[in-house]
Design a protein around this nucleic acid. Structure first.
Lengths: 225, 225
DNA sequence: CGTCACTTTGAGCAGCTTCAAACCGGGTGG
DNA sequence: CCACCCGGTTTGAAGCTGCTCAAAGTGACG
């Protein structure tokens, strides 16, 4: 994982800088996690960021009274731990959804200005992503939320060289429901309905996308006029 | 607005670093905006961050089909524009809700490593705040959302020296509804109900908090057992 | 073979949205 | 100065979406 040169934010679109550019060869400590193991918990002292090397994670925030909310899923090539920088304590729980491997990036080692700029980009991208989730949670119907979720997952997998149309869900219906602000039963019913309508094929956690265009049409209902 | 020295993230909680520490005397260009004027729009080229000096802003994201979502409100002392760093184009619209003044912080001028660290903190705090909003949108009932909104507003105003218990809402019911993922009528009804229950007093956009503890109890329903 | 966690499916209900109408306050122009 | 208008707000009534509760189905694992 070489360190790429920093690019000026004004310049033409950078040729696909990966989040993982933050990972320098020099300081690459790895850490393995088993399924259901947690990388860090709320309140834990912050001292490093983590680049996901392999595997799959969920992050969630928990309220005093037990209510919780899954705020994101993270796959290979993404950086997690950003929530800890502001207070030097982590503000979320990160749990591995399958056996995974992360690369530890001690925050102190990020002195290089170019790398810091790269970190800005990574954080900014996370902010923009969060805005998208807010839009989803704040103004979409259940079917649209699930469609967005599937399309987004498909696109991210494709970007990593996996099949865009057929994949295995690492997370439970409860997790999906929590992420999308829906009851698990609603998620299950929607999977069944999308299957019945031949938008997708579902068998438990195995999903095949049959009609991506139709899924997009669920999200952006065509004007009737 | 002096530049405060960077603090090590490991060290004891920093003595209230303000977001505005990013604003250096040397490069303080100001910009005035009238009510309803927009600071920037989606797609516009990014080249600076903005520190809010006075006034009040809303930020919102818009979908192709017109659906939109207000993703935050911003008051004096907060930094906006962070969404533009990742792609060098802004990903949201920022609109002034009253005559306002911002301080322009050209991104290029943020070379000092200490300042960059400070920027990391600001962004990280924004990420944590967003997680809170997701929790709100994903797992709270309407009354809880409004209570959180009011308590949060109260707390932020207090932190800036304004009254915590009495204030003027700068945004419309529609804006509040959009932010909280509710219809404007629901927001209005809840205001009326909170008023009837003597949690608050409302007259149009003027709000007085009568019983903050009870508002908190709305958010965290006391265990019945 | 039984258990256990997860998923599917059904039925009824509640909370919130939608539609509709009235109200309120401020600004404008006759 | 008043009438009117207009955006924003309040309130009511009806309907639908998604939740809750409940029960049965599925697959993995000991």
């Amino acid at each position: 994982m070489p360190i790429r040169p920093a690019t000026d934010p004004q310049s033409a679109p950078a040729p696909h800088l990966s989040d993982m550019d933050l990972v320098s060869d020099a300081v690459s400590t790895r850490k393995r996690l088993k399924r259901d193991e947690s990388l860090y918990r709320t309140g834990q002292a912050f001292n490093a960021l983590y680049g996901v090397f392999s595997g799959f994670f969920k992050s969630c925030v928990v309220l005093e009274d037990g209510r919780d909310q899954i705020t994101g899923f993270h796959m290979a090539g993404e950086v997690i731990g950003l929530d800890g920088i502001s207070t030097a304590r982590h503000a979320a729980n990160i749990v591995a959804l399958e056996d995974s491997e992360v690369c530890v990036i001690p925050y102190d080692h990020l002195k290089d200005p170019a790398l810091q700029r790269q970190l800005h980009k990574v954080m900014s991208r996370a902010l923009v992503r969060d805005q998208g989730v807010m839009l989803l949670l704040g103004s979409m119907r259940a079917e649209q939320r699930l469609a967005v979720f599937l399309l987004n997952l498909s696109q991210r997998l494709a970007a990593r060289g996996y099949s865009a149309n057929e994949f295995h869900l690492r997370m439970s219906r409860i997790d999906i429901g929590s992420y999308l602000g829906l009851a698990l039963e609603t998620v299950s019913r929607l999977f069944s309905r999308f299957d019945a309508e031949r938008l997708i094929e579902v068998d438990q956690r195995h999903v095949r996308i049959l009609d991506a265009a139709a899924l997009r049409a669920v999200v952006f209902p065509p004007h009737e006029s």
